[in-house]
């Protein structure tokens, strides 16, 4: 019997779930692009009332807007460290794609600066690299899902907008999907002194 605490802050939604052997004990979420820092502890505090015993932490590693993304990862790694339990990182786009029962599609989330983070999925697997692009560059004929698809009118679907924390737990049993570092995809926005003068 394993109880997992799942956390994702890679989109404008902060999500938490408590899953025991595939069964959802509790889940909660709140939308707010700048609220992750105070919402996440509230949600986890509520989850811990349902079960204070946690065997592992699973966290969405992005890609996603950096500041919000780091809230989830830093919280998760500190929680796991204090409890001395395993921490597993999973790609947040995979946790959106997991529940979609269509053969081939694209998941796109908001990357700010009028761009989206995206990947192509086929037969339940990610078949492209993770990427960041302008929405207009994503003409494919494939159906779109994810917050970014909705934001840039690539799709009318209101489903599968955000990473599902329960899916994070389901994916965590596949070692090949484990991610050990944040998926930033972009370099820090700064020019070195030599770059600036040239």
């Amino acid at each position: 019997m394993t109880i997992s605490l799942a956390i994702d802050t890679a989109t404008s939604r902060t999500s938490v779930a408590l899953v025991r052997d595939g069964k959802v004990l509790w889940h909660g979420s709140q939308i707010g692009a700048t609220d992750h820092g105070s919402v996440l502890p509230q949600l986890v505090q509520t989850a811990l009332v349902v079960s204070a015993e946690i065997d592992q932490v699973v966290v969405g590693m992005g890609p996603g807007p950096f500041t919000g993304l780091r809230v989830g990862i830093s919280f998760a790694q500190a929680f796991a460290w204090a409890r001395n339990i395993p921490l597993i990182g999973i790609c947040s786009l995979d946790a959106i794609a997991h529940g979609i029962e269509i053969d081939e599609f694209i998941v796109a989330t908001d990357a700010r600066r009028k761009e989206v983070y995206w990947a192509i999925y086929k037969s339940g697997e990610r078949i492209s690299d993770l990427a960041v692009s302008k929405p207009a560059e994503l003409v494919s004929g494939l159906p779109f899902f994810g917050e970014g698809s909705h934001l840039y009118q690539l799709s009318q679907s209101q489903e599968f907008l955000y990473p599902d924390p329960v899916a994070l737990v389901a994916l965590s049993s596949n070692q090949k999907l484990h991610v050990s570092a944040p998926l930033y995809l972009r370099r820090p926005d700064a020019l070195s002194i030599s770059e600036r003068s040239s």
């Binding site: 820092g37 502890p41 950096f66 830093s74 929680f79």
Partner: peptide
């Protein structure tokens, strides 16, 4: 710096709730 502060505060709340 807000992004820097949030790494510390989120780590701290993670430690606090775990313990």
């Amino acid at each position: 710096l807000i992004g820097a502060l949030l790494v510390g505060t989120s780590s701290a709340t993670g430690l606090a709730l775990a313990s």
